[in-house]
């Protein structure tokens, strides 16, 4: 084989392997973040989020202008992407979101769209994280995963870490100055803890269950890294 062919073979092979390394939890994170935006602001624009999803689907493209990215996303065939592989349902979900954006990259009617996006997020979580979604509400589960940066990372952490995700500030305050330690992080917003009398104990029990079920989901439903 000549030098040129070796280089081309390696580029092609790396692209294929990178494609396999991008996991489907990215879709859950994307829709959770969209929901977070919608909860935080009345009618936000989604230039940044569209950039994120564009980088996932077409990682080797060099386009940086957000307006051109949206044009490309509207015209592109999402099932034939270079990056993350989507099935038919997921293509429909994404296309619903993209087609609902107007020329200022805001949602046309945020109230109706939010309901639909909530459903989408719920169904994605139920599909890829079936046992964890029985333990905790899908929106909070998505928040925990998105704040940690992926299912692969979180599944390798102990349950005490899962319990305190989102309470980093008070945890480090406790470590440096000896103030009382935090009992719960993002997990607090689950109804199971809100309604219970002993919140600290409940959050510990919930985190134990959650960390076990997250591991179960990761090793059952996601492809393991190569080699």
């Amino acid at each position: 084989m000549e030098d040129k062919d070796i280089v081309l073979w390696n580029i092609k092979e790396s692209k294929e392997r990178i494609r396999k390394a991008i996991l489907k939890d990215r879709m859950i994170i994307f829709f959770t973040r969209v929901l977070e935006d919608l909860n935080k602001y009345s009618n936000p624009n989604f230039y940044g989020r569209m950039k994120d999803i564009y980088r996932l689907l077409f990682p080797f493209d060099k386009e940086t202008d957000p307006k051109k990215i949206i044009q490309k996303m509207k015209n592109a065939d999402l099932s034939l992407s270079e990056g993350l592989t989507l099935d038919n349902n997921e293509v429909n979900y994404l296309q619903f979101f993209i087609n609902n954006l107007n020329e200022k990259c805001k949602l046309r009617d945020p109230r109706d769209a939010k309901k639909k996006i909530e459903e989408i997020q719920k169904s994605l979580v139920a599909k890829y994280l079936p046992s964890s979604s029985k333990v905790i509400e899908p929106y909070i589960l998505g928040k925990i995963i998105s704040s940690f940066g992926g299912i692969q990372k979180i599944s390798r952490k102990p349950s005490s870490t899962v319990q305190l995700i989102g309470a980093e500030k008070s945890l480090f305050r406790h470590m440096s100055s000896g103030s009382p330690p935090p009992k719960y992080g993002l997990i607090f917003y689950s109804n199971k803890i809100k309604n219970s009398a002993m919140k600290g104990r409940a959050s510990r029990a919930l985190a134990n269950k959650l960390s076990i079920s997250l591991r179960k989901d990761y090793y059952r439903n996601f492809p393991q890294p190569l080699s």
């Binding site: 040129k4 280089v7 390696n10 580029i11 092979e13 790396s14 990178i18 080797f60 060099k62």
Partner: peptide, 15 residues
């Protein structure tokens, strides 16, 4: 990989 596509003699290995 983006860099390798520009130049001629870099072979990226994702492994």
């Amino acid at each position: 990989v983006k860099l390798a596509e520009k130049s001629k003699n870099i072979a990226p290995i994702f492994s």
